[in-house]
Structure formats: structure tokens, C-alpha cells
């Protein structure tokens, strides 16, 4: 599904992600672990095309390295931001309509229900009136509605109460069921458990990739072995 070859991302003249090689299979939930500043978000943004990169990104056999964000999105890749944007004047309904191929209310209602939000939130503006947690769930609903081939979720669990963790896990598993692959950036142990595979990134490099249970153990005792 996705193959990343020798990916390097420079920011302000410094390499933030260095020679990353990674493969994500179909219907695979792949966890990306790493301490703050390790390059997880930069990697996610590079896959989405937000940051330019060197190396190759192959998606379903096609080289998408030089494609703009929206063309990658139209090929089935999308990303949920760690800190979702506020949109003055745009209601949740209007925002979700943008990602939904079926422009119908019952589908939107179902999506907000799946992410644990009440129906009437659809009529609210995506502004300061909504909490960070609510905006994150809306972001998740938006990704769900797109039925992407590859969803990149950047810490969907941060700033959300512990009780909601299982709800987010369920959403991710639902995406997998629907046929999506998921790249999940997280710090939460509970979330790591739903992964098929996992990768630890440290100092912009891959330290270890493999079965998520094994990687979880390693990460717990040595989150950034490169730093000693």
C-alpha cells in the first residue's frame, strides 16, 4: 500500500527525518512511537505532502513524492492533525460535508455518533466554542467519512479523557474493517495495543520496526535508545 524509501525531510536547513524506510500494508494499523521532537509529526506531514522531502513515497505502486497535498488526498490519503484548525463561519455539518462522498445528513449523524458527539454539534461553528477534544473528534469523523485508503492520525488521543480512549480505538478498528490502513502516532499504551505493527523513531531515524507488542515493550524501557 505505502512504501517509503530513504525519506529525508529538511526543515530550516536541518534534517528532521533521516533516511526513513518503511512499508505499510493494506488494512494495517501501524503505530509510530517516539519521544517529543523525534520527527513523528514531520514524517506524517511528509507522507501527506505538507513538507517537501527527498527520497521516494510510493502509494499503491505510484510515485507520489512530488504530488501536492490535495492530489494525494484524492488518491485516498488523509491526515488528522494533532491540533485541529478552527474555522470561523464554517459549521461542523459544512466541514464534514467536504469530506463525505455521500452528501447526506444521515451519514453525518452516524459519523458524529461514532466519535461520541451529540447530533446537534453538526450545527455549531468550528471555533472557540468547541473544546480541543471536540475538535479532535470532529477531525476523526471527517477522516472516517472520507473512507480513505490510508489515514494518518497524529495523536488523536492527546487531550482526550481516558474514558474516550476505547471509543477512539473502536473508530480506528472500524476504519481497518472498512479497508483503510492507518498510521497512528500515539504515546498511549492502550492505543499501541490495537496496532498490527509499530515503529520507534528517535532523532529522526527509525530505531526499530516490527510486531507492535514487542515494540511496545522495547519502547517502554528504552524510548530513545539512540540518545543512550
Amino acid at each position: 500500500m505505502l512504501e517509503i524509501r530513504d525519506l529525508t525531510v529538511m526543515r530550516d536547513g536541518k534534517p528532521i527525518v533521516k533516511n526513513i524506510n518503511l512499508t505499510i500494508g493494506k488494512r494495517e494499523v501501524h503505530i509510530i512511537l517516539g519521544i517529543n521532537g523525534s520527527g513523528k509529526t514531520t514524517l506524517a506531514h511528509a507522507i501527506m505532502g505538507i513538507y517537501p522531502s527527498q527520497g521516494k513515497i510510493i502509494f499503491e505502486g505510484e510515485d507520489i513524492t512530488n504530488l501536492p497535498i490535495w492530489e494525494r488526498a484524492r488518491r485516498g490519503i488523509t491526515l488528522a492533525f494533532q491540533e485541529p484548525a478552527r474555522f470561523e463561519g464554517l459549521t461542523v455539518k459544512e466541514y464534514l460535508m467536504l469530506s463525505s462522498p455521500e452528501k447526506n445528513m444521515s451519514v453525518l449523524k452516524e459519523a458524529v455518533k461514532t466519535v461520541g458527539l451529540p447530533y446537534n454539534i453538526l450545527f455549531q461553528e468550528i471555533g472557540d466554542n468547541l473544546s480541543g477534544g471536540e475538535r479532535k473528534r470532529i477531525e476523526l469523523a471527517s477522516v472516517l467519512l472520507m473512507k480513505p485508503k490510508l489515514a494518518i492520525l497524529d495523536e488523536p488521543d492527546s487531550g482526550i479523557d481516558i474514558l474516550s480512549f476505547s471509543l477512539i480505538s473502536d473508530v480506528i478498528l472500524k476504519m481497518k474493517e472498512m479497508g483503510s490502513s492507518v498510521i497512528l502516532i500515539t504515546h498511549s499504551e492502550e492505543m499501541i495495543n490495537i496496532g498490527d505493527k509499530a515503529t520507534i523513531i528517535c532523532g529522526g531515524k527509525i530505531v526499530k520496526s516490527g510486531d507492535s507488542k514487542e515494540i511496545k515493550k522495547l519502547f517502554k524501557y528504552s524510548p530513545c535508545p539512540l540518545k543512550g
Binding site: P68, W70, A73, T78, A85, F87, M146
Partner: peptide, 15 residues
């Protein structure tokens, strides 16, 4: 706003 712009582009909208 760049974040708004990028968010909408990740949903498949052109700039």
C-alpha cells in the same frame, strides 16, 4: 490561515 488551508487540502480540495 495556513493550517485551515492545509486541513482542507488534506480533504481533497485544491488550494
Amino acid at each position: 490561515d495556513k493550517k485551515q488551508l492545509i486541513t482542507l487540502m488534506t480533504r481533497g480540495l485544491t488550494e
